[in-house]
Write a protein that binds this DNA or RNA. Structure first.
Lengths: 138, 138
DNA sequence: TCACAAATTTGAATCCATTACAAAATTATA
DNA sequence: TATAATTTTGTAATGGATTCAAATTTGTGA
């Protein structure tokens, strides 16, 4: 079975054409897109796709933990289809968001006060990326 | 000299009446307020204070690293006048934001790819707080 | 103290991401 | 095939954030 369809069904989501297209986009593009990005890029292959559907779908996928919301950028919500543990870096020059390794020792169960239960955790950095600093490879 | 005035001047910000009032509010209220919160609460003592001034001031304070922007909540930007290192926890029930200890081992300089420089880092959790879970003290 | 320049504040208008909503289309069920 | 349930769609509305120019306040020098 298609990996994207399986991913949706594993999270209790009925795999409509639109939902599969949006989830596939997220899984194949590791760019942490916004709603606008998704709409623009999917418009060619699905001219009738509406923004409301994208909002609805991303909201549903988020509730079911099939994707993760990145609030790293105060201007727009970004979405990430990769649920494996990793941190994010936002470049203040080019505004791209990069995946970076999680710092070690982040298992912080012991640090939380009694009665607090963590459902999701996010580690965000901002600064300047290797391309904007001119110090990166290439 | 007043601590708030000193804080502003230490960050190269001229301490106008409005700026001092807003910075003082942030330093005295550890509630991570939004623009709306600040406006509502300062309105009594400063009826002429405009929202634009609050936006301008928070933007200036942010640029000068005199406060920190919390993007933990996708609905609104929250502001924090406490620049000491700590993490944040957003309760999905009551939507309050709590200060929590930073996990150990978060010094992640070694983890970043060559050419990436970190200017700010944030650790965000969400889940259920002690009051909403009914398992807290009191 | 006064006049002028610079900085700051203000409110109205605007922008734009997100949400609400109800009709239309699609899919599931009997 | 008929009916119900689900999903999609476009339009309208919402509301946080920004723009902008006028008004006010503050700083500077004579």
């Amino acid at each position: 079975m298609d990996l994207v369809v399986k991913h949706l069904m594993d999270h209790g989501i009925r795999p409509s054409v639109q939902r599969v297209a949006i989830m596939r986009y997220l899984m194949e593009h590791r760019t942490h897109p916004t709603v606008e990005d998704i709409y623009r890029d999917l418009h060619d292959e699905m001219p009738t796709l509406s923004k409301t559907t994208i909002y609805n779908t991303l909201s549903l996928l988020g509730e079911k933990d099939a994707l993760s919301l990145l609030t790293i950028d105060s201007k727009n919500i970004h979405y990430d289809g990769d649920m494996s543990p990793h941190a994010h870096f936002l470049c203040r020059c080019c505004h791209r968001i990069f995946d970076v390794a999680l710092p070690l020792g982040l298992d912080s169960d012991g640090m939380m006060p009694v009665g607090f239960s963590i459902e999701h955790s996010h580690v965000y950095y901002d600064g300047v990326c290797n391309m904007c600093s001119g110090k990166g490879q290439e």
